[in-house]
Design a protein around this nucleic acid. Structure first.
Lengths: 330, 330
DNA sequence: CGATGTCTCGGAAACGTTTCCGGGCGATGG
DNA sequence: CCATCGCCCGGAAACGTTTCCGAGACATCG
């Protein structure tokens, strides 16, 4: 049998299609008619066509979340925070994993003009001029999780990962570490450069020198942390290590174990993001909480406000970091 | 400025809207016209409206993937396998995290009749009569990852987790374990019951007795594994343990550590799913690979085939398990 | 040179909704 | 009893595409 449309319902209920639409959408109409229409709709198994509704109302009920990599537990925390908010507001969530590819991110931004979603939460790991250009002319509201130039007219919520990294270094210094290494992500990413700056801040405030031989740049994965740390250990001795990421820190702990160094006795380790990985690692990993869940929640709320027309001027929010101390640095 | 529609382009190019549609969709038309239309479209920044196209072509370009929990790395592997396949076929991926709630899963199935996606990959953890009823009358193709009664006319690809669990038990028995525990998921889930059956199979084939005091049922999370294992250790002594899940196994290893038992010297541990967690755990966890990535890939391919009209009759595929031996059982 | 065919294009219908607008009808007030 | 008002309802337009159909223009063939 063919699909039930509003016409089917109208015939079954013996009313016009306008009445069906009104009855089902809660417009003023005779309670009696409403009941008849409801019954008819249920009987023929009517469900409104998403496409037709969207075309008419210019409202899709979908919101997209674009991130670098679904496998990164930091994004997982965000998704977990965003999902229930959107759902209770009646939106479906669309996930894009862009693989940190600028082209793909731009493509997502441009395709917004096709109106297949009502809004977007974007987590760029680098922000290029092409991003800014694309952001300037999107058809639907966008909220960025990350840093953005002040001049850009887009809502954003960011973590303070510079301060967060400084906290990590200060914590290690306070625990007596003198040779504190940083295994960082790529230098040309926003988080990478912020974390390097925070590392330098931390050494300064602890009165320690900045030594290039203690710093490595790699990617944000476990394997990257493992390799970079091996390389690091082949050079100078260290007694403390900050991973720019929980994943990097876990890779680093593997490398230390393989090199026969005991964490935290020989080397104390701190990660960043405080993901699920940190608590379940061995030894449990001290980590800087950059408020991923909170950022996700704020971003979703900002977007919902804007979609509801409640939002004011451009909003910029920063979330404060906090340190979560576990075995790896005791 | 208002949004550019096909009319805008038609005016700018000095042709009719039908010609614009033909030119852009590669229908036969004068190469000269095509060029003019392309130029005009680029100039006014035209992008077709997803809703209007969907309404007309009854084709959304979206495919949904519904799972229990995005945080479970087993699903992550599936998503990672599915995403590139769909993308290169021109589909966007929509993720649903249902929280193993039957109601939500049914809702997803029913909302398929709103045609907001072209197809669905569903990973149910339990299969109820309501599932079967809803599956029977979906408007779009569905592929299930999991077990389904033979009578249901739906494509499915499943893991053989019964055999997988048997392999785990046999491996432990071969390594000299006599008191092999099972920390299982909920008994009323498909994976839970299959794994219990496989556990019994394994004990039988190793000539060991089945002892109820060695079995616990909990949820599929780390915390569940931790608690259930604590409870287990308070009872009988064990020298081997199978976690129905890598997450459970990792929780179990934590409990063992807290109880002062060394893995693998005192107790050998095996997990199931062979997720990213297994390789990065300490000690690295022996785990049964149930072919999550392969299942995802097969399911996506099956769905794409069906959407392209290439598919034959109902297809049922099973993926073979294999054991990945690491430190935790050496 | 007329008939036939090919190629390209424009008009119009259709997809399934929502919403504006006008009309019918009963109730109310003078 | 007539005019007015408010409540419901039906008709029709509109959202932005795709696609069918028919009409010209031009070349080709008998």
């Amino acid at each position: 049998m063919a699909r039930a449309t509003i016409k089917t319902v109208a015939q079954a209920a013996g009313v016009s299609i306008s009445s069906v639409s009104r009855a089902l959408n809660g417009q003023t109409s005779n309670p009696d008619t409403v009941a008849r229409v409801r019954a008819a709709a249920a009987q023929v198994g009517y469900l409104p066509s998403a496409a037709a509704q969207t075309l008419k109302t210019r409202h899709t009920g979908q919101i997209a979340f674009a991130m670098e990599d679904i496998g990164n537990p930091a994004y997982l925390a965000m998704v977990r925070a965003i999902q229930p908010l959107l759902r209770s507001a009646g939106y479906r969530l669309l996930l894009h994993s862009t693989g940190a590819d600028v082209g793909e991110e731009i493509q997502v931004l441009e395709s917004l003009n096709q109106h297949y979603v009502d809004g977007l939460v974007l987590c760029p790991i680098r922000v290029t001029d092409r991003h800014l250009a694309a952001l300037a002319q999107t058809a639907v509201p966008v909220v960025v999780i990350g840093s953005l130039p002040e001049t850009v007219d887009v809502d954003a919520v960011r973590a303070d990962s510079r301060t967060g990294t400084r906290l990590a270094v200060e914590h290690l210094a306070a625990a007596g570490c003198r040779d504190i290494a940083l295994v960082n992500g790529p230098a040309d990413t926003t988080p990478g450069s912020a974390r390097y700056a925070g590392y330098v801040d931390g050494l300064r405030s602890a009165g320690l020198p900045v030594r290039d031989e203690l710093v490595r740049f790699t990617n944000f994965h476990i394997a990257g942390g493992l390799e970079a740390t091996k390389d690091l250990l082949a050079g100078t001795p260290i007694d403390g290590l900050v991973g720019a990421n929980d994943r990097i820190a876990i890779g680093a702990m593997q490398a230390l174990r393989e090199a026969g160094r005991v964490v935290p006795r020989d080397v104390k380790v701190v990660g960043i993001d405080d993901t699920e990985l940190a608590a379940t690692a061995y030894p449990p990993l001290t980590s800087v909480d950059l408020g991923a869940a909170q950022r996700g929640q704020l971003a979703a709320q900002l977007l919902l406000d804007r979609l509801a027309g409640r939002a004011a001027a451009r909003t910029r929010v920063a979330v404060e970091p906090s340190l979560n101390i576990r075995e790896s640095s005791r």
